[in-house]
C-alpha cells in the first residue's frame, strides 16, 4: 500500500499538488492529472449506479461522470451547493469529475516531504492514500486515483 502512483517520486524532485477539502480533512492529487476545475452543477443521476457515482454532467458536449469523492472515501456525501467544486481529472485516458467540498491550494512539495501512510489495515479510506505530508502543520493526504477509481483503470491501455 505504499505505491505512489499519482505523484512523481524522484528524489528531491518538486511535486505540484492540487489540494482540496473533504469535510474537515485536506486531500490532494497530482496537478498533472487535473484538467480543469468547474463549479457545482447538479449531475444527472444514473439509475442503479453506486451511491458515490453522483451522475453525469455536460463537459463541453461530452458526458462526464461525477464521483462524490467524500462518499467514495467512506465519509459523508458532499452536499452540493454553490461552494462545492468538481475537479476534472484524467486517469488512464478517461476524464472523470471529482466532487469535493472546496479547492484549497496548489502545493509544491519535495518528494522527501512525503511519508508513507501508516498501515491501518481494514480501514477503507487508507488504501486510497498513497502518501502523507505535513504542510503548515496540517496533514495533507495524497490520493491514489487509480485506487479511488478502479473502474477506470481496468481498461487502461
Amino acid at each position: 500500500m505504499t505505491q505512489q502512483n499519482s505523484v512523481q517520486k524522484h528524489h528531491g524532485a518538486e511535486i505540484e499538488l492540487l489540494s482540496f477539502r473533504l469535510g474537515e480533512d485536506e486531500y490532494c492529487v497530482g496537478i498533472m492529472s487535473v484538467r480543469e476545475i468547474r463549479g457545482w452543477t447538479r449531475p444527472t443521476p444514473l439509475p442503479h449506479a453506486p451511491p458515490h457515482l453522483r451522475g453525469v454532467i455536460n463537459l463541453r458536449g461530452t458526458v462526464l461522470p461525477v464521483v462524490d469523492l467524500s462518499l467514495r472515501l467512506g465519509m459523508d456525501p458532499v452536499g452540493g451547493d454553490a461552494r462545492n467544486v468538481i475537479i476534472v481529472v484524467q486517469i488512464n485516458g478517461h476524464a472523470v469529475g471529482l466532487l469535493v467540498h472546496a479547492v484549497s491550494d496548489i502545493l509544491a512539495l519535495e518528494s522527501d516531504d512525503l511519508q508513507p501512510p501508516p498501515e491501518t489495515a481494514g480501514s477503507d479510506g487508507a488504501r486510497f492514500i498513497s502518501a502523507l505530508a505535513i504542510v503548515d502543520e496540517r496533514m495533507v493526504r495524497i490520493l491514489n486515483l487509480e485506487a479511488v477509481l478502479p473502474d477506470l483503470t481496468v481498461e487502461a491501455a
Partner: peptide
C-alpha cells in the same frame, strides 16, 4: 445521441444520453 462511455458499465434501461437545451444531460 451521446454515448455514456464505458466507465460505469451498462445501465439497465438506459440506452444513451443527450444534452438538452439547458445544457444539462438527459438520459
Amino acid at each position: 445521441i451521446k454515448g455514456l462511455g464505458d466507465s460505469y458499465g451498462r445501465i439497465p434501461g438506459v440506452a444513451a444520453a443527450t444534452i438538452l437545451g439547458d445544457g444539462r444531460i438527459a438520459l
